[in-house]
C-alpha cells in the first residue's frame, strides 16, 4: 500500500462544495506538486490533510492507518496532525521568539509531556537545540539563530518556517504556496531549500504556482479544478502532453509549454 492514500475526500463550506471527491496516493519519498487556479480546492485539500479543516467524507490513510476514523477529540486530532507538517504561504513565524526558539518551541513542549523529561531535562533540551541548529544549517540560516523574525527577509522567514516544520520530523511535509508571498527575487532561495529536502524517505506535497519548480522537482503533478483532480501524472505528462482542456487552458497562461 502506498504511504499516503487519499480517497474520495469531500469538504463543503456552507453550500459551497470545495472538494468534490479527491483521490490520489503517494509513495514514500515522492514529491507531489498540486497546481491549479485559485479556488480550485488546493489549499483546502492541504488543510484537510493537516486537520485544520475536518473533511466531510472520504478517507486519509498514512502508512496503512486510516485517519478519518471518527475519533475527533482534541487529543486525537493533535496526534493525527503530527503525521503532517505544514509550511504556510504567510510563514506564520512566532514573532516573540528568536529563530532558534521558533524551531525548538514545539519539540520542547512535546518533550515536556514525556514522563522522563524532568529526570533528563538538560540533556533533552540540549539535544533539541542541537537538532534545531542542524536544521537551521540545512536551510542556510545558522547565523541567524538569535535573530527575531522581524529582522529577516521574507525568504529567510520562510526558510525558518521550513526548519520549524522539519523539527518534528513529520512523515509528510506540505507546502501551501510557499513562495506566493515573496518578492520574485526571493523565491529562488526558498525553492532551492525545498528541493534540497527531497530524500528517499521524505514525502512532500507542494501546492504551487511555480510551474518550473513543479516540473523539475515533482515526481507527480496534480492539476485541480473545481474541487476535483482534473488531471494527474508525471510532470512530463501533465506539462508536456496535457489531456484535459482545462489543464491546457490553465497551462497556456504560463509560457513554457513548448520548451
Amino acid at each position: 500500500m502506498a504511504h499516503l492514500v487519499v480517497e474520495n475526500l469531500t469538504k463543503t463550506f456552507g453550500t459551497l462544495k470545495v472538494l468534490k471527491g479527491v483521490d490520489f496516493s503517494l509513495e514514500k519519498g515522492e514529491v507531489l506538486a498540486i497546481i491549479g487556479s485559485s479556488g480550485s480546492g488546493k489549499t483546502t485539500l492541504l488543510r484537510c490533510l493537516n486537520f485544520l479543516e475536518t473533511a466531510d467524507g472520504g478517507q486519509i490513510t498514512v502508512s496503512g492507518r486510516p485517519l478519518l476514523d471518527g475519533y475527533n477529540n482534541d487529543e486525537d486530532i493533535r496526534k493525527k496532525r503530527l503525521n503532517f507538517g505544514l509550511v504556510f504561504q504567510s510563514f506564520n513565524l512566532f514573532p516573540q521568539y528568536s529563530v532558534l526558539e521558533n524551531v525548538c518551541l514545539a519539540p520542547e513542549l512535546h518533550a515536556q509531556e514525556k514522563p522522563d523529561f524532568k529526570a533528563n531535562k538538560a540533556a533533552i533540551l540540549a539535544d533539541i537545540r542541537k537538532n534545531g541548529m542542524e536544521l537551521l544549517e540545512k536551510v542556510g540560516l545558522a547565523d541567524k539563530a538569535d535573530a527575531y523574525p522581524c529582522q529577516l527577509s521574507g525568504g529567510q522567514q520562510q526558510r525558518v518556517a521550513i526548519a520549524r516544520a522539519l523539527a518534528l520530523s513529520p512523515e509528510i511535509l506540505c507546502f501551501d504556496e510557499p513562495t506566493s508571498a515573496l518578492d520574485p527575487n526571493l523565491t529562488g532561495e526558498v525553492l532551492r531549500v525545498i528541493r534540497s529536502l527531497k530524500t528517499s524517505d521524505r514525502t512532500m506535497i507542494v501546492v504551487t504556482h511555480e510551474m518550473d519548480f513543479a516540473r523539475k522537482v515533482a515526481d507527480k503533478v496534480i492539476f485541480m479544478a473545481n474541487g476535483i483532480i482534473e488531471e494527474e501524472g508525471t510532470p512530463e505528462q501533465v506539462f508536456g502532453n496535457p489531456q484535459s482542456e482545462l489543464t491546457k487552458a490553465f497551462l497556456t497562461g504560463f509560457d513554457f509549454t513548448e520548451d
Binding site: 493533535r78 496532525r81 503532517f84 514545539a106 518534528l168
Partner: peptide, 18 residues
C-alpha cells in the same frame, strides 16, 4: 491576533492551551 498564529501552533501538534 491572526488565525495563522493559531494554525501554525496547531499544525505543530500543540494544544489549544499551549
Amino acid at each position: 491576533i491572526s488565525r495563522g498564529q493559531y494554525e501554525a501552533g496547531y499544525v505543530l501538534g500543540l494544544t489549544q492551551s499551549q
